[in-house]
């Protein structure tokens, strides 16, 4: 048994596209390898269309991989499982259900007692600070609040791993920073393993222990960086640190190189 929580072993994902006579094979992912320790916080960073979201969905089992293997807790996965929970960029709450109903939703197939389900849901709604809104419908909430519900829904199934697909991408800058602080608080509280997809360099540095930088066509990991800051982190404390600027610059240079290779 390995000590790693998630092992991504030379994973590839390709699919065919175009009309039958002009079929082209597109490599969304190629030779991707990455390991993530239990309780770790790793960001997948890269430009849009580089395959980072595809990899995240592959880890969840939503998309089947065509080469290599993904192991979670030492076992190869093929389908979505209860040990992983996915947080979507566009929230994807069920609009006809209340906040409480949305958080209860994934529990309904596993827990038969309604009271028990609601008790669990309420615990996590409280954790994301929405207790006052549990009877509201999603369309009555702001984007930030909707994503809090999305996070509560993911936590409610008590997964080992949170897979977050640009969860704050649809939010405005201020809400985004608040949510980042909030997410770190919840992560430290629950000890989940987090895989976080983003295209914001600052967000990746602020949140994660390690950053895997993607390059596109074919999507693969071009470099990994360790983030040297200890938790709990505060936004201001980190941004003033010269190591922050250095790291940021180094990642930027890498991403920019990728952009240039694109244009020729």
């Amino acid at each position: 048994m390995s000590t790693q929580k998630i092992e991504i072993d030379t994973v590839g994902k390709s699919y065919e596209t175009g009309p039958r006579k002009k079929r082209k094979v597109v490599h969304a992912l190629k030779d991707v390898s990455l390991t993530i320790a239990p309780g770790g916080f790793v960001s997948l960073l890269g430009p849009s269309g580089c395959g980072k979201t595809t990899l995240l969905k592959c880890i969840d089992g939503l998309i089947p991989i065509t080469e290599g293997e993904i192991r979670v807790g030492g076992k190869a996965i093929a389908d979505p499982g209860r040990d992983r929970a996915f947080v979507f960029q566009d929230f994807r709450l069920l609009p006809w259900r209340t906040v409480l109903g949305n958080v209860c939703f994934p529990l309904e197939t596993t827990i038969s007692s309604k009271a028990e389900r609601e008790a669990i849901a309420k615990k996590y709604i409280d954790m994301v600070g929405l207790t006052a809104f549990e009877r509201h419908h999603p369309h009555e909430l702001s984007g930030g609040m909707q994503q809090r519900v999305g996070i509560a829904r993911a936590l409610a199934v008590d997964p080992d791993i949170l897979l977050m697909d640009e969860p704050f991408g649809a939010l405005d800058a201020q809400t985004r920073e608040l949510m980042q602080v909030e997410l770190l608080r919840i992560w430290e509280l629950t000890g989940k393993t987090v895989v976080f997809v983003t295209h914001s360099v600052d967000e990746a540095i602020f949140l994660s222990q390690r950053i895997a930088v993607f390059s596109s066509r074919p999507g693969t990991i071009s470099a990994e960086f360790d983030v040297p800051f200890a938790y709990p982190r505060t936004d201001l404390g980190i941004r003033r640190d010269p190591r922050f600027t250095d790291l940021r610059q180094e990642i930027w240079r890498l991403l920019k190189g990728d952009q240039n290779s694109f244009s020729d």
Binding site: L62, P80, G81, F88, R92, W96, P106, R153
Partner: peptide, 25 residues
């Protein structure tokens, strides 16, 4: 595209998805 992927990610069986997601949606 919108809701069924959510149900899949949370391991909801197909008939439950039809009843609890598709019909209300």
């Amino acid at each position: 595209n919108e809701f069924v992927e959510v149900a899949k990610a949370y391991c909801i069986p197909q008939w439950t998805v039809l009843r609890k997601v598709v019909l209300p949606a």
